[in-house]
Design a protein around this nucleic acid. Structure first.
Lengths: 130, 130
DNA sequence: AATCACTATATACATAATGTATATAGTAGG
DNA sequence: CCTACTATATACATTATGTATATAGTGATT
């Protein structure tokens, strides 16, 4: 039997659908970026370098290019091999705007759930009054 | 070429990992419930009866039973066939508490992203000042 | 008792998002 | 040439979810 509690210990399993993609669109909104470099910037969105999956990042960027949200080209680096640098497209910017709306809905759904949880748990546990 | 905007029109594709499961745990927290009946109650969590997937609901309940979060038994109905009625377990309640913490983290990550989006978009679009 | 509408549950198949592990390759320094 | 580092890519597996369909009991109607 697997340890059920264990899944709450590693933060990796607590992803939100496409959240990484939205963060990348926002990072690329006003400046270009490449895979490895974006990893460091993602810290500002709650991703820790350990739990951030390099494979997932690269795969996501390629997928976004396939969808026309970003374009890419190879650029020389002053240290190390060439980098595939991504630039956001107009479609990518529009896509980001849509995602922000979705995230606002998600947020309000979560807020509503938490309110209902607090209400119910208080009602249940305040039998202290006995 | 598929219409990229289309995915934003149908609300079905905007799920949040395991959100349904958490809602079910909360609904079952203080009273038992069965599949069909729970569907109506889920409206309070932002699920519309149309976009709520009956298969997903039943499958989720069975999975939760397999994980020991709920138990079930068959109960007679005053109208229609028997119902499989679910009851939350202690483990299920503990699990819910953990999920609430995760949802609070999700919420703050989303809030942070929205703040950064607003900041960046204002900076970009306020070139009106020219 | 046959049919039908309704309630209720379950499962097979497919897809999407993500994680794990590994492969490939250029660069710079010794 | 060997090694450490930077950088990108891909194969395979798992998880969560959607779509479609199957199964079956109940009660009313014919």
């Amino acid at each position: 039997m697997k340890d059920k509690q264990a899944i709450f210990c590693n933060d990796k399993s607590h992803h939100m659908e496409r959240f990484l993609e939205v963060c990348l669109l926002l990072l690329l909104y006003d400046e270009i970026g490449y895979g490895y470099g974006l990893i460091e910037q993602l810290v500002n969105f709650g991703f820790s370098p350990e739990d951030l999956n390099v494979s997932t990042l690269y795969r996501t960027l390629r997928k976004m290019e396939g969808e026309g949200l970003v374009t890419s080209l190879w650029e020389e680096s002053d240290q190390g091999p060439k980098r595939r640098v991504y630039e956001i497209t107009l479609e990518g910017k529009e896509n980001l705007d849509q995602w922000i709306k979705i995230l606002k809905m998600r947020k309000s759904k979560i807020e509503n759930l938490i309110v209902q949880y607090d209400k119910k748990i208080v009602d249940t546990t305040s039998d202290l009054s006995d």
